[in-house]
């Protein structure tokens, strides 16, 4: 069982309140852009493995806001040690959502480690996250979404999504502009 990634991200970001979003390179960046461009989105187009650590620095700097990292299984796997660094800091406002298609989608759908049995929620749990879960279907997403918005972090939710191209929705690639508009939007 698996979910449609675009629909899942659209639901996560509907009524997002003051949530800050960091998206991992490739498809997760397109999914977040497809849900509606927002100045409080920081889109990655590279620096593979950096999405979760960016979430950590941001969550520490902005403890009153929810920080949501939306990334891919491949992107997270490249910086897996970052989960241990996050757990060590216990940022209660940080949530990592992995859109887990068990593939390196952007580069031709090669199987990733999650297709070979790596359980990202178990890894997060083992690192010491407050909460970690895997979501396989709509009803599990329904039950998890409130936690994602308001539950105590650090939290990792792996959403199993269908391995298929969703079409590219391209946000700005101008890193300076994305950075500056984000800072302006939150008043820093």
């Amino acid at each position: 069982m698996s979910l449609d990634r675009r629909e899942a991200v659209r639901r996560l970001l509907a009524d997002r309140g003051n949530m800050l979003v960091v998206s991992g390179l490739g498809s997760p960046t397109y999914d977040v852009a497809a849900a509606g461009d927002d100045d409080r989105n920081f889109y990655l187009w590279g620096a593979m493995g950096s999405a979760a650590p960016i979430g950590l620095g941001l969550a520490i700097a902005q403890p009153e806001r929810r920080v949501l990292v939306i990334t891919g299984d491949g992107e997270l796997l490249m910086g897996l040690g970052g989960l241990a660094s996050i757990a060590a800091q216990r940022p209660t406002n940080l949530v990592i959502v992995v859109l887990d298609n068990e593939r390196y989608g952007e580069t031709g759908m090669q199987k990733s480690h999650t297709a070979h049995g790596t359980d990202l929620a178990a890894v997060a749990q083992g690192c010491g996250f407050s909460r970690a879960a895997t979501v396989h279907d709509e009803s599990e997403l329904d039950r998890t979404i409130r936690d994602i918005r308001a539950g105590e972090g650090p939290m990792l939710v792996a959403i199993k999504v269908t391995a298929g191209e969703a079409g590219r929705v391209l946000p700005s690639r101008d890193g300076v502009e994305i950075k500056n508009r984000f800072r302006r939007a939150i008043g820093v």
């Binding site: 950096s50 650590p53 620095g57 970052g82």
Partner: peptide
Amino acid sequence: LTNEAEGMGVLAGAWLGG
């Protein structure tokens, strides 16, 4: 950190957050 590469992300996130 477990690896220095995480530091670029953490410090970028810090700056985004002011």
